[in-house]
Amino acid sequence: MRLTAKHPLPSFTAWIAALAASSSLHAADAIAWPDNYQSRLQVQALVQTINANILASTSATLTLEKWCADHAMSATPKVTAHLLRGVTKTASAEQRARLQVAADTPIRYRRVQLYCGGHLLSEADNWYVPERLTPAMNRLLDETDTPFGKAVLPLAPYRRTLAASTLWSPLPDKWETGQVPLPAAQATALDLPSALFEHTAVLYTSAHLPFSEVRETYQRGLLDFPPPPAR
C-alpha cells in the first residue's frame, strides 16, 4: 500500500524519531564523574568548598546562585524555589526558644527545593515568624515560589549555624594518613548519593532579632558540571 500525506504512520514515525533524538541529547548532556582517585579528590575539594562558602555567607540562596554562575550550570544562573505545598511540620519547643517567641505565637512552615536550571541544589525546611516579616514578604512566601533568602533580603539578614554535618565523602576517613586503603578505580561513573551535607541555622534581622530557623540538605546537583580536564 502506498502511503499518502494523509496517512497517520509518517507523523507517528516522525514523533518516534524526535523522541529518540531528544533522549540521545539528554543522555549526552548527563554529567558523569569518573570513579578514580583524582576524580574523588576533586569532588572532595568541591564539596568542601561550597560547604565552607555557605557556612561563611549571610545568604545560602545567593551563595548557590554564584556557584551556579561560576560553574556555568545554566544559561540563566538564577536560583528558583519549587514550593512543596501541603507539607506541614510543627515547630518544637526548642525551636520556639531559639526564635524567642511564646508558645502561642504563630510560626509558619515552608518546604522548598532550590533549583538552578534543571539542577536540584538543595532541599530546605523553614520555620519562620510571619509577624517579624513585612506584609509584602509574607505575600511572596505564601503566594509564590520565591526563595526564602531572596524574599527577606530587605531585612539585611545574617545567619548563625546551629549544626553542620557531612552526609557523604568520596574518600574514606583518614585517607590522607595512608593507613586506610583508597577505593579502587572503576570503569563506571562515580556513584554520587542524593544528599551531600546538611546545615541547620537561625536567621536574624540586622537588629539581631531571630525570625527563621532553616534546615538545608544539599544535593548532588551541586556537582552537575563537567569534571576538570585530566592533567
Results as ranks from 00 to 15, higher is better:
residue 169 S to V: 04
residue 197 F to H: 00
residue 229 P to E: 08
residue 141 L to K: 01
residue 117 G to E: 03
residue 39 S to R: 10
residue 103 A to W: 01
residue 85 R to C: 00
residue 181 P to F: 03
residue 148 F to I: 07
residue 231 R to V: 13
residue 90 T to D: 14
residue 102 A to L: 06
residue 70 D to P: 00
residue 119 H to E: 08
residue 56 A to P: 02
residue 152 V to T: 13
residue 150 K to S: 09
residue 126 N to L: 10
residue 40 R to Y: 08
residue 212 S to V: 07
residue 178 G to D: 07
residue 18 A to S: 13
residue 89 K to Q: 13
residue 152 V to M: 10
residue 226 P to I: 11
residue 108 R to A: 07
residue 192 L to Q: 09
residue 109 Y to A: 05
residue 35 D to N: 13
residue 32 A to L: 06
residue 150 K to T: 15
residue 189 A to V: 14
residue 62 L to Q: 13
residue 29 D to H: 08
residue 90 T to H: 12
residue 1 M to W: 11
residue 165 S to G: 14
residue 173 D to A: 09
residue 15 W to S: 11
residue 75 A to F: 06
residue 203 L to S: 15
residue 7 H to E: 09
residue 183 P to Y: 14
residue 109 Y to N: 04
residue 75 A to P: 01
residue 211 F to T: 07
residue 30 A to N: 04
residue 113 Q to P: 07
residue 138 N to R: 03
residue 105 T to D: 05
residue 30 A to W: 03
residue 55 L to A: 14
residue 203 L to Q: 09
residue 157 P to Y: 06
residue 9 L to S: 10
residue 52 A to D: 10
residue 104 D to N: 12
residue 103 A to R: 06
residue 91 A to D: 13
residue 116 C to G: 09
residue 32 A to S: 13
residue 48 Q to E: 15
residue 22 S to E: 09
residue 45 A to F: 06
residue 81 A to W: 00
residue 146 T to F: 12
residue 114 L to N: 14
residue 82 H to Y: 05
residue 181 P to W: 06
residue 190 L to S: 06
residue 78 K to F: 03
residue 38 Q to V: 07
residue 173 D to P: 01
residue 38 Q to P: 02
residue 147 P to R: 15
residue 42 Q to M: 02
residue 188 T to S: 15
residue 59 S to C: 09
residue 18 A to W: 04
residue 115 Y to C: 06
residue 131 E to T: 15
residue 12 F to W: 02
residue 56 A to V: 02
residue 19 L to P: 04
residue 75 A to W: 04
residue 189 A to E: 01
residue 108 R to F: 13
residue 148 F to Q: 10
residue 88 T to M: 00
residue 231 R to N: 05
residue 6 K to T: 14
